[in-house]
């Protein structure tokens, strides 16, 4: 209880702030539509209204506050509007429908998972190579680290278009971007993990005259697990971001990124918010899932 009370308070505070902000964000559009419907609003001059502050408008037109929560195209949708839209698009629509968020979510998720699997696999392989080959370590590692300071995401549109022009479409290009984004965190984390055993532990294996392979399976790999899981969490979140951004230039309006882009074209804020919330839940679920596997694995290894 004492652990949840503060978190609950903060969450309630966020929602309260959100609800409180809605009238101020939406007042101008609301007044315009109310006036069109015949209501008397102050000031009645549209130009004056445009220049007036949001706070003053809400003060002068307190009768309109309830209407600000029920706009068709609000600048800031109220939480319940987003919830309604989510209900409509997640539960009420058939999952095969193009209006179903589950359908779009699955498109994004499948690219994310495929990319994440490729990126993680390649990342672990490269890390193993780096730990065992000095030349590889010195050649590649500085670039792997430096690449984390570069906004790799910027090349996502190009990869999509280029692959498109040579006939590769759909899942694969997005998965490549996801793989690319999850690749580097895994390499860096895994190298750190494989090097985690200290000199004494390595020396102990040398006194047994263990082979390099034995050293890897019995010491390096188990020791790297906590590091691997930490970078998997970062990697999966990055993979999801990659898949979403990869959907922006695709233009097909498919996937969560596509929903965001079409929402932004047509001024459908509620649609953007729904896609955002859905993406957030997806990200949280993925990270949580890895956390779960991590806890079970480390427990079995006696590390947690």
């Amino acid at each position: 209880m004492s652990r949840f009370a503060p978190v609950l308070t903060i969450v309630v505070a966020i929602f309260a702030f959100w609800y409180a902000a809605v009238p101020f964000m939406n007042v101008k559009e609301t007044l315009t539509s109310l006036e069109r419907a015949g209501a008397v609003v102050t000031p009645s001059n549209a130009v004056e209204r445009r220049d007036a502050s949001h706070i003053a408008l809400v003060m002068k037109n307190s009768f309109a506050i309830s209407a600000t929560y029920a706009q068709d195209r609000p600048r800031l949708p109220a939480p319940h509007q987003v919830a309604q839209d989510l209900w409509k698009t997640v539960v009420m629509k058939k999952v095969t429908s193009k209006r179903s968020l589950v359908y779009h979510g699955w498109i994004t998720l499948s690219a994310t998972l495929l990319g994440f699997a490729i990126g993680t696999g390649a990342g672990i392989l490269l890390a193993v190579g780096i730990v065992h080959s000095r030349a590889m370590d010195m050649s590649v590692m500085p670039w792997a680290i430096a690449s984390q300071t570069i906004p790799i995401l910027a090349i996502a549109p190009m990869i999509i278009v280029v692959l498109n022009s040579i006939g590769v479409q759909g899942l694969i290009p997005k998965a490549i971007i996801s793989a690319y984004l999850s690749f580097f965190p895994v390499v860096v984390g895994m190298v750190k993990g494989l090097r985690a055993p200290d000199a004494m532990q390595m020396d102990l294996l040398r006194t047994y005259s263990a082979s390099q392979g034995q050293g890897f399976w019995k010491l390096r790999l188990p020791a790297s697990m906590p590091y691997l899981f930490a970078s998997l969490k970062i990697g999966v979140a990055a993979a999801l971001v990659g898949a979403i951004v990869a959907e922006l230039p695709a233009g097909g309006a498919r996937g969560l990124g596509g929903r965001m882009l079409t929402g932004s074209y047509y001024g459908q804020m509620v649609q953007i918010w729904s896609a955002l919330v859905f993406a957030a839940v997806l990200a949280a679920a993925l990270v949580l899932l890895i956390g779960l596997v991590q806890r079970r694995t480390l427990k079995r290894m006696g590390l947690a």
């Binding site: 978190v7 609950l8 903060i10 979140a237």
Partner: peptide, 20 residues
């Protein structure tokens, strides 16, 4: 209260707020 919320939000695809 804020740390768990902050840790949660830090893992979310925040670029998604860009269109908003």
């Amino acid at each position: 209260g804020l740390l768990p919320v902050g840790n949660f939000v830090a893992a979310l695809p925040i670029v998604g707020t860009a269109p908003i």
